[in-house]
Design a protein around this nucleic acid. Structure first.
Length: 405
DNA sequence: CCTCCACAGGAAGCGCAGGAGT
DNA sequence: ACTCCTGCGCTTCCTGTGGAGG
């Protein structure tokens, strides 16, 4: 054996990296600067500052697509408010709650009560008791309490919750409770009960998507923190910004693109991140999205997709023999027959032909396949079907999926 | 031109799980 | 805890459509 070398040590020593602080482009990183959100920051802090005069601040509703900075901006302003209040000894409290994990009135109130009484345990108490306890806590502390409800559309009994929280202000002798709702569903507001809507939307604010130029600036700033000097090409940043702007205007995916590009450069032990890496990263992200999508498909839709993948590979090999040039699409009928056969092979009752057509439409909507109406030269009125992505990759992904099931 | 083929996609209805109402 | 209701996934049945072939 000789002398022992720590395998990680060599790994660490030999590994050269383009990153300076990889954390700065991780999805969880909380920047303290938000370019192009000055107006929103100003407006929110304006509203929050009412609390500094020991008065209840207005409720607030924020919406905009994912990656537009709603959450980060709100958390930043809240944190600074609490810091300032702490220094000045002002009675202000606040909690950020993600409603994906706290998706009911009871869970939200439990979270609040835990903040108010950190030492006590409230497991198993009734909803009414928890509510009273929250009121009691706010009243005794004479505090102005800010509750930030992120992904507020996930709360099942939201009308109840908002009603309870607004009503609480009438019951409180001291202190107050204000609500900040955040949602990325634009239509969510319209579906609310009118009373809930009017109390929640005392103020509302929109976070628009970023355009390419803005994303560019944002990425520039982050890249400076995250990458070593000269370890990333300007054009690579431009490219990542352009991709993200075209897709969604989402800063998170733009940043993610840079992170993946950096990882790819590291893997190849290259000294700088270039356009190629961003392109590859984009492809990788897309692939992951597709695989994710495939994994969540119902079983029979997976079987169907697997059939389509197998058949199109089969056709391709035939093509090589006959020397046909253009890619042959599959006929709707032949796919159904083959699918039904495959389903029975694995002891599954195939879905009806009608429902199969519905599946085909869905797969098309997801962008996994392409369909076209049969034109001249083909008998009957049918659909011609082709895979949108590499058949082999999709087939492999599905087979892995079946193994796990 | 008519008929047949090979489907597309609408309408109705069925069984079931899960939420609302009491 | 109970029923009632509703939405969902699906089947059955049906009418519509566009080209091939006689």
């Amino acid at each position: 054996m000789g002398e022992t070398t720590n395998i990680f040590e060599t790994h660490f020593a030999n590994q050269q990296t383009v990153f300076l602080d990889r954390n700065a482009i991780s999805p969880h990183f909380m920047p303290n600067k938000f370019p192009f959100r000055e107006k929103q920051i100003h407006e929110i802090s304006q509203i929050f500052s009412t609390n500094l005069n020991q008065k209840k601040s207005d409720n607030l509703f924020l919406y905009g697509k994912t990656g537009t900075g709603k959450t980060s901006v709100t958390r930043l302003v809240l944190r600074q408010l609490l810091e300032f209040a702490g220094k000045q000894n002002l009675p202000i409290n606040g909690t950020y709650i993600n409603c994906r994990n706290h998706n009911s009135k009871y869970r939200v109130l439990s979270k609040v009560v835990k903040e108010l009484f950190p030492e006590e345990n409230f497991l198993g108490y009734s909803a009414a008791f928890i509510y009273d306890k929250v009121m009691d806590g706010v009243n005794k502390k004479k505090t102005n309490y800010l509750i930030v409800l992120d992904e507020i559309d996930k709360v099942k009994d939201l009308d109840d919750l908002v009603y309870a929280l607004t009503r609480s202000n009438d019951e409180l002798e001291n202190g107050s409770v204000s609500v900040v709702g955040i949602s990325n569903n634009v239509f969510f507001k319209e579906r609310l009960d009118p009373r809930t809507k009017s109390s929640l939307c005392q103020h509302e604010m929109i976070f628009p998507p970023y355009n390419a130029e803005e994303l560019n600036k944002i990425l520039d700033e982050r890249a400076e923190l995250a990458f070593k000097p000269k370890a990333i090409e300007e054009s690579a940043i431009n490219l990542a910004a352009a991709f993200a702007a075209k897709e969604s205007g989402d800063a998170r995916t733009a940043v993610m693109l840079l992170l993946k590009a950096g990882e790819l450069a590291d893997k190849k032990q290259e000294t700088s991140v270039q356009d190629v890496h961003v392109q590859k990263a984009k492809k990788k992200v897309e692939e992951e999205l597709i695989l994710n999508m495939i994994a969540t498909l119902p079983k029979h839709q997976q079987l169907l997709l697997h059939t389509i993948a197998s058949l199109s590979m089969h056709k391709k090999s035939q093509q090589r023999i006959t020397g046909t040039i253009e890619e042959l699409p599959l006929f709707s009928g032949e796919i159904y027959e083959e699918y039904a056969k495959n389903a029975r092979n694995v002891k599954e009752q195939p879905v009806s032909a009608r429902w199969y057509r519905e599946y085909i439409s869905e797969l098309e909507m997801f962008g996994l396949i392409l369909t076209a109406a049969s034109g001249h030269g083909i008998r009957g009125n049918t659909r011609l079907i082709r895979l949108s992505f590499d058949a082999k990759k999709i087939k492999e992904a599905l087979e892995k999926q079946f193994e796990n099931a």
